[in-house]
Amino acid sequence: MSQSNTNGKNKIRLSELNKWRHSTTGEKVFDIVNILFLVGFALLCLIPFINILATSFATPGEITTRSFILWPRTFTLDAYRYILSTPTIFRSIGVSLFVTVIGTSLSMVLTSFLAYGLSRKYLHGRRMFNFLIVFTMLFSGGMIPSFLVVNSLGLIDSLWSLILPGAVSAYNMIIMRNFFQGIPDSLEESAKMDGAGHFKIFFNIILPLSLPSIATVSLFYAVNYWNTYQGAILYINDHTKWPVQVLLRQIVLVSSGLNADATVVDVVPPAQSVKMAVIIIATLPMLIAYPFVQKYFVKGAMVGSVKG
């Protein structure tokens, strides 16, 4: 089976190569310019991250003498040793992991249930519910009403204040709803003839066929929860419950000599490399998670956004 797949891929590559050889001069020029443009755009996106990574490993002397670093002359782990030598970063990472895992799980349960219900054409009031959900994408109560709601629920200084207010995203729900609508109704009708109920149809038929949509929306929710910042600033006063993004802000403020709680973050030289090291540590989990859902990402986003 693997040999036949390899032969098939080789045939496809040869056909594409032959097609390119027989294309006109204008088409070849366009392909070359397009490739060069995309490579240049990719480098523009990649170079800043390489600079951050290189600066986090650079020595204090090199940081002061070089304004832009892509490859440090001398590697040092002092910034990472300093950050990892204090319990503050581990506590913040633990808070972010808790919020991300619990929040993503809860959001996927609520969003998938809501999307499945609204994807069924026989649901009474379906148009009205869809309109109300889309309406929230255009108009929202704002920061002060949201704070009053969270405060009235007694969620101030609770990690649930970082999870519950954004538990369901209208955009993510629409992606899942449109994906569910693309599943043939005949599958549901056949299951009903065999005596299956809505929950059995949902868990045994709909979800297994919706892995691209589930992976895509899960990634959206996970990135959103991991990068939570504004909610933590508004609702969390206890610094022991700060997520890693707020800790990053404190490090930037302290190292810049601005007002901040220096008892929480005591930055020592080199401050610039410490800031860059924290950025790498804060970004690394999402970079590790993305390759596992990459093969589902494009398919889930495109099908869920276009269909319906």
Rank of each mutant, 00 (worst) to 15 (best):
Q3N: 12
G8I: 09
N10Q: 14
K11P: 00
L14M: 14
S15Y: 08
K19A: 14
S23I: 04
T24L: 03
T24F: 05
E27C: 01
L44P: 00
F49G: 12
L53M: 15
L53E: 01
S56I: 06
G61R: 10
G61E: 15
L77C: 11
A79G: 11
A79H: 07
Y82I: 09
S85M: 12
S85I: 11
T86R: 15
T88I: 15
S92T: 12
I93A: 15
V99I: 11
T100A: 11
V101R: 10
I102M: 13
T104A: 01
S105R: 07
S107Y: 06
S107R: 05
T111G: 06
A115L: 00
Y116M: 04
K121G: 12
L138Q: 08
F139M: 13
S140N: 14
G141E: 04
G141T: 01
G142D: 07
S146T: 15
F147I: 10
L148I: 14
L148Q: 12
V149W: 03
V149Q: 06
V149R: 01
V149L: 13
N151C: 01
S152G: 10
L153Q: 01
G154K: 07
G154N: 09
W160L: 13
L162D: 02
N178T: 00
F179E: 02
F179K: 00
L187C: 02
S190N: 12
K192V: 09
K192T: 07
M193S: 08
A196F: 06
I201W: 09
I205E: 04
I205K: 08
S210M: 05
A215H: 09
T216P: 04
A222W: 04
N227Y: 04
G231W: 08
I233C: 03
N237K: 12
H239V: 12
V246E: 03
V252E: 06
A260K: 03
D261G: 06
V267E: 05
S273M: 05
V274I: 15
V278H: 02
I279C: 01
I281C: 04
A282L: 03
T283I: 08
I288Q: 04
A289P: 00
A289I: 05
K295D: 07
Y296P: 04
F297S: 00
A301K: 10
K307P: 01
G308M: 07
G308C: 11
